[in-house]
Simulated assay, not measured.
Amino acid sequence: MSVESRLADLGLTLPEAPAPAANYVPFVVVGNLVHISGQISQNEAGLIKGKLGADLSIEQGADAARRCALSLLAQLKRACDGDLSRVVRAVKLVGFVNSSPDFIDQPKVINGASDLMVAVLGDAGRHARSAVSAASLPLGVAVEIEALFEIR
């Protein structure tokens, strides 16, 4: 089953690949690896802001992470000239969670992105991962995730 078919079956649509907010590029292709810059949590209504452990629940954080994953896939699609069949596998996700000092469930938040990668890419979506806390994130967003993918 194609990535596009899996997205459709899940009722998901990729957003437009977000433009960089500063002096960097959204992705860099080196050989068969695509390094995707951090994608911040946002949806159709705008930025998903807040601090886990203070303003947002784990479920809200996981949804914010899913939104980051959709933006990662949108950037990946651009890097693959619109052809997601070129994706071999997700290699690594690095997730940053805007957290209160006592919040310890960063992995549960980033599971929102990890679960989406597996749902969309199947076994090729299984990846290495880091899930870390941040005192704050750009623009006050709840989650930011960067990724590395292998393509053909």
Rank of each mutant, 00 (worst) to 15 (best):
L73R: 02
R67Y: 15
E146R: 04
S136L: 13
S99Q: 08
A131K: 00
Q106Y: 03
A69D: 14
L139Y: 12
V87Y: 01
S114M: 14
L116R: 07
V141T: 07
A131R: 00
L148F: 03
A119M: 10
A135D: 08
I110T: 15
R66E: 15
A119D: 14
S130V: 04
G112D: 01
S99A: 15
L137R: 02
E146D: 08
D115I: 06
L73H: 08
V118I: 11
V97W: 00
C80W: 00
L121A: 10
H127T: 13
Q75C: 12
A131Q: 03
P107E: 12
A134V: 09
A79S: 12
L139P: 01
A79I: 02
G112K: 01
V91I: 15
S99E: 05
F103K: 07
A142E: 02
L84E: 06
F96H: 14
I145A: 02
L72C: 15
D105L: 14
A90S: 15
V91E: 05
L139T: 00
V91C: 10
G122E: 07
I104G: 14
F96N: 13
D115N: 11
V118K: 03
S114G: 11
A65D: 13
R86E: 05
L116P: 01
A124Y: 05
R89W: 09
A90V: 15
M117F: 15
V120M: 10
P101Q: 10
V132E: 08
R126T: 09
R86S: 09
V132S: 03
A124K: 11
V88Q: 11
L139K: 02
D83H: 04
S114R: 13
S114A: 09
S114D: 14
S71Q: 14
A79Y: 03
G122I: 08
L139S: 08
L73D: 01
P101M: 10
E146L: 01
A124R: 09
S133T: 09
